[in-house]
């Protein structure tokens, strides 16, 4: 059987009317489950405090008289400056870090599936040791230029003397596991050290600090998800290209990446969303200038309890751009891999 248009391939099985009905029922039920809390946010954003407190009201104009007071407060009134600034910061930080993470992570994932790395354990330990000493020195106040030069010297000496004696080496899967293991420590355990690190670098309260942090935090996820996609892409194509004289970079850029578009899009959405919504690291790394929106949301629970109406407005205005991106990118996920077509 030949598929005429590779972009319109779907399950080849046609559904019977009954199956169709059941499928729709399930889909609609889950849609309801997903939508209802969002609907509730929407109506809450139009309620006065008293409408929230007096019990559940569902329909504006019928149950209660809607008010724009919360929208006014967030977008025009007292909080407008904060909202605008934090919104801008989020818009700068999240897409930048997500794109960088996608770029570096995809490259690393490709490397891990197509090359064999055998880093020697001895070298790694020497390198780590030096790095720790350098970072500790900078943290304790040594000038960073001196620290790095001393570190390089120390490293060369260590490599010449100690590292050559250890011959054990790691495998690709070890590298991958090491990467993902970086996500295992809960943020509370790393936030103060990261704060100190950026403080010594003088990067606190800059967009750069947040971008670097989210980049590092999200890289492992990109690497792992993309690794699986690359493993499912057949090698023949790349080998053909290599015979034709294409460089590795070219193979990666113009053959492998286009094939991995669904995975790339899905992964990009995640890292974008993670960076868009991150709270704890943003709280510590930002001051007045680079605060992001999740802080504004969390801040609506203050001494007088959660301000549901303000919170609802903020959550809604936060998800609108992400939904727009998701809608725009959805068709790329749906496009599907060309694997089958190529194999055939």
């Amino acid at each position: 059987m030949v598929i005429p248009n590779p972009f319109r391939r779907r399950s080849p099985v046609a559904l019977s009317p009954l199956e169709m009905a059941i499928s729709y029922l399930i889909l609609i039920i889950w849609t309801g489950v997903v939508i209802f809390p969002l609907y509730w946010l929407l109506v809450t954003s139009f309620k006065l405090p008293i409408d929230v407190n007096m019990g559940p009201f569902y329909l504006p104009f019928i149950d209660f008289q809607p008010s724009l007071h919360a929208w006014d407060y967030i977008l025009v009134g007292d909080l407008a400056n904060d909202t605008r600034r934090n919104y801008f910061n989020t818009v700068v930080v999240a897409p930048t870090s997500a794109s960088l993470a996608l770029l570096l992570g995809t490259a690393a994932a490709y490397g891990l599936t197509r090359f064999e790395y055998r880093p020697r354990l001895g070298l790694i330990l020497c390198f780590l040791g030096t790095l720790v000493i350098v970072v500790a020195a900078i943290t304790l106040g040594a000038p960073w230029q001196v620290a790095i030069l001393a570190g390089i010297a120390l490293f060369v000496i260590l490599v010449q003397t100690v590292a050559r004696r250890f011959q054990r080496s790691l495998k690709n899967s070890d590298i991958a596991f090491w990467l993902i293991s970086q996500r295992m420590l809960p943020p509370v355990a790393v936030v103060i050290p990261i704060y100190v690190l950026f403080q010594r670098l003088g990067l606190l309260d800059t967009h750069l600090a947040l971008i670097i942090t989210y980049l590092a935090v999200n890289l492992p996820i990109v690497v792992w998800l993309m690794r699986d996609y690359f493993q499912s892409i057949p090698l023949e194509l790349e080998e053909c290209a290599a015979i034709d004289g294409a460089s590795r970079y070219r193979i990666f850029w113009s053959i492998v990446l286009p094939l991995a578009v669904p995975g790339l899009v899905a992964t990009f959405l995640f890292v974008l969303v993670f960076a868009w919504n991150e709270y704890l690291l943003a709280l510590f790394l930002s001051g007045a200038k680079s605060q992001t929106l999740p802080l504004t949301v969390a801040a609506q629970n203050a001494t007088r309890g959660p301000q549901w109406w303000y919170m609802s407005v903020l959550i809604l205005i936060m998800i609108v751009p992400v939904i727009a991106i998701a809608v725009a990118l959805e068709r790329y996920i749906a496009r599907g891999l060309l694997v089958g077509a190529i194999k055939g």
């Binding site: 570096l104 992570g105 490259a107 790095l131 720790v132 990467l179 790393v190 050290p193 690497v223």
Partner: peptide, 13 residues
Amino acid sequence: PAVLVVLFLSIFP
């Protein structure tokens, strides 16, 4: 690049 970025922010913490 990926390994270095992760290393940069993970070893010290």
